[in-house]
Design a protein around this nucleic acid. Structure first.
Lengths: 192, 192
DNA sequence: AAGATTTGTTGAAAATCCTAAACGCACGGA
DNA sequence: TCCGTGCGTTTAGGATTTTCAACAAATCTT
């Protein structure tokens, strides 16, 4: 009967995980227990890794937060867990002098999303050999004009106008105007 | 990661899911039981949804496949298509009068990415009950000022400044300034 | 400073899960 | 046909989890 000294049967860090999540959302064991329809004692034992909850219990508890089982197990507290705020230190990743592409957030692996602050000087051109890569991308022109070619379609976008397409369709960006063009774009999964 | 609505439906039937996975990997209950170090009876009961396994059991069983808990609860596929160019006809999706959120691209299912052109009038606030959803999001302030609260951190961003964070951390946007704030944001997977 | 609340932690009993062993069924070979 | 093998299912009982209720510590209130 005695409590088995936490052998590997008790899954990893379910308890720690639950406690962390619960605290992040500012709930007490009792409050969460009330919402979930379980007892606070159960939550206490689980968080201490003294027991390994049944799926049904864990699911009930997570519904009180609420959080799906999938999200609970997928939640990654270490990698891209940080909050990013940037002033002028967006990292430059452009390859051409007349094009500036500055990345929002750190260039870490495992991101779901990439966002760029781009500036195309007059005459800037990503080239006749059209770009092609995996994923999808979109953007909004903030100032200036940008000529976007996607597959057989071409269009010159003005401030406030936008695009969205699959990145495996050959594409090209050009500034045929006389003033610099500012574009904010995003892609998923991130290319950079 | 998967969409919450789908998660709920899926995680309801752990049993069906386990049986499906087991069969996909061409294992019998007994063979899986042997590899996992549990009894075939347990697997049978679980697959029939006669019991709700403990996390430790389910984890042991999945290790026999092998498959991680996170992977077990997440199974998703989705394609996408079409080229999108928009002028002023970005679709409005905001629910508050003092906040405008206009979506780039069509509101189709299976997109990899969502991009919004947002305008926060002075005083606009997404609310004290912080927002929280799956995925990651980022944005750049184009004009005006925006106060962004993420978890315990808060910061007021000015034009050119940006943020990036995991969307499951409670967050809130407010315009505490005197002029409208224009923000371009992106999220993956798309919330809208 | 004492009392009232709120917090997380326990112990024993009730509820639920897991194991061991047996059961029924289907298939194949001698 | 009879036997052996392999499949998923079932049952009884031991093992584990969950509840219920009480507990100590910390924080507020008065």
């Amino acid at each position: 009967m005695s409590l088995p000294s936490q052998d590997e049967r008790i899954s990893d860090d379910i308890g720690i995980r639950l406690r962390l999540v619960r605290q992040i959302f500012g709930l007490t064991q009792r409050e969460l227990a009330r919402r979930a329809g379980v007892t606070n004692g159960a939550i206490s034992l689980i968080e201490q890794n003294r027991v390994s909850p049944s799926i049904s219990s864990l699911k009930k508890i997570l519904e009180g937060i609420p959080l799906s089982l999938a999200d609970f197990f997928t939640l990654n507290f270490s990698p891209s867990d940080e909050v990013f705020f940037a002033a002028d230190d967006l990292t430059e990743i452009a390859h051409q002098p007349e094009i500036s592409m500055r990345l929002v957030g750190r260039r870490t692996k495992g991101r779901a999303l990439g966002m760029l602050h781009e500036v195309y000087q007059p005459g800037a051109d990503t080239g006749e050999t059209m770009l092609r890569h995996e994923g999808e991308e979109c953007g909004i022109v903030v100032s200036g004009c940008l000529t976007v070619t996607v597959g057989t379609q071409e269009r010159t976008l003005r401030p406030g106008e936008a695009y969205y397409f699959r990145s495996d369709i050959p594409h090209r960006f050009r500034n045929q105007g006389t003033e610099p063009c500012v574009l904010i774009s995003a892609n998923a999964p991130p290319t950079f």
